[in-house]
Amino acid sequence: MPYTVQGVVARGKGEPVSLETVIVPDPGPGEAVVTVQACGVCHTDLHYREGGINDEFPFLLGHEAAGVVEAVGEGVTEVAPGDFVILNWRAVCGDCRACLRGRPWYCFNTHNATQKMTLEDGTPLSPALGIGAFIEKTLVAAGQCTKVDPLAPARVAGLLGCGVMAGIGAAINTGGVTRGDSVAVIGCGGVGDAAILGARLAGASKIIAVDVDDRKLGWAKDFGATHTVNSRTADVVETVRELTGGNGADVVIEAVGRPETYKQAFYARDLAGTVVLVGVPTPDMTLELPLLDVFGRGGALKSSWYGDCLPSRDFPMLIDLYRQGRLDLDRFVSETIGIGDVEDAFAKMHRGEVLRSVVVL
């Protein structure tokens, strides 16, 4: 029998979200229904509400989630009812050219559930990032469920489903930060702070946090930044170079997604250093750089998709580090809220008052 539950829906561009009755079908072949226990409020959900992703309204928002598998469809072997899982939005296919070359974190054919969740009148919903987790139960592809240690609290485990994984992965997987490296992170929201945490975990000797907000720079120090730069009052490139012996950082992670901050990242890195773009730009943005500088400075200019993570590999490992007290995920949770409080959480996020609000169901 289909499930009748409550979920947070964005009906139109810029409109306040509403709590609606949603019909969740029984899982079909390759699908799973998950009882959501907690879901972080991510900027991407706000982008969906504002029409910044696409115009396939109405959207079922929420995607940074953890919960328990309720039921699975035919042919599902990865998970079983009762498993505690983190939801991911890049369920690898195993068959595309990236997967067959042993690089499944670049999978070019990730998949979602085939069936649609709907409103009571039958209107199909577009789930955010193929998940839709501001809801009591959600339907996903079974490959979007990653089984982890059930002793981890859902309020922190779910954060690995998007922003925290993106930041940690940008530092470790994409940027290749290792012991002794100098690292600069531009933009100290949730993703940037996760990149700082990842750089610290990898053994970076110097971690420079850059932002326009002193409160966020304070948060960055809590996550392991050794130096901070307020770009409203200091020249980012000059200051990063001064802090690194005049050379620039070995790895610069741009967690804003704007041309001006990308240029800062490009020129704040050392010769043959690495720039990692993990901030998400809007479709209208363009970048202009002297080609001679791109050639002459060498190194690598990389984009980080979801922290270049492989959920089946990375989620359990990071949860284990959390359980060992080596990865402070609790610090990301600014507040826990109810499912009816998402609109207020968006307002707090816009004002920069929270790192992460987490809906607990």
Rank of each mutant, 00 (worst) to 15 (best):
S303N: 12
A142H: 11
N54W: 01
R351Q: 14
P127L: 09
I172Y: 07
S205I: 00
Q6H: 15
L291M: 13
G161P: 02
E254I: 03
D213M: 09
A194V: 00
T35K: 15
W219Q: 05
L289N: 01
R232S: 12
S334I: 06
G338W: 02
A195T: 02
E254F: 02
A157N: 01
T118G: 08
C162Q: 07
V275G: 01
D149C: 11
L217K: 03
F266M: 10
C188W: 02
P150C: 14
P16E: 06
V280Y: 03
I319Q: 07
F108D: 10
L46H: 12
L243A: 12
D344T: 13
S357G: 01
G246R: 12
D344F: 04
V148G: 05
L355D: 01
H227S: 08
V256K: 00
D293F: 09
E74A: 11
A194N: 01
T336K: 08
V183C: 04
D55Q: 13
I168C: 00
V68Y: 05
P29A: 12
E64L: 03
D55A: 11
P150K: 14
G190W: 03
E120L: 14
R258D: 13
L291Q: 09
E288I: 05
A128D: 04
N247F: 12
D320I: 03
A128M: 01
A32P: 09
I186F: 10
A91C: 08
E242R: 13
T174F: 10
A255H: 07
M349D: 01
A184W: 05
E50Y: 01
K263N: 11
T336Y: 04
V72Y: 06
Q324T: 01
V251K: 02
K147I: 00
G180N: 08
D213S: 15
A142G: 11
L287G: 00
C39T: 11
V294N: 02
Y306K: 03
T286L: 07
C99Y: 06
N109C: 00
G246I: 10
T138D: 09
I337T: 02
E136P: 05
V251S: 03
S182I: 06
D211S: 11
V9T: 07
D222Q: 15
T118M: 04
T286Y: 08
P2D: 14
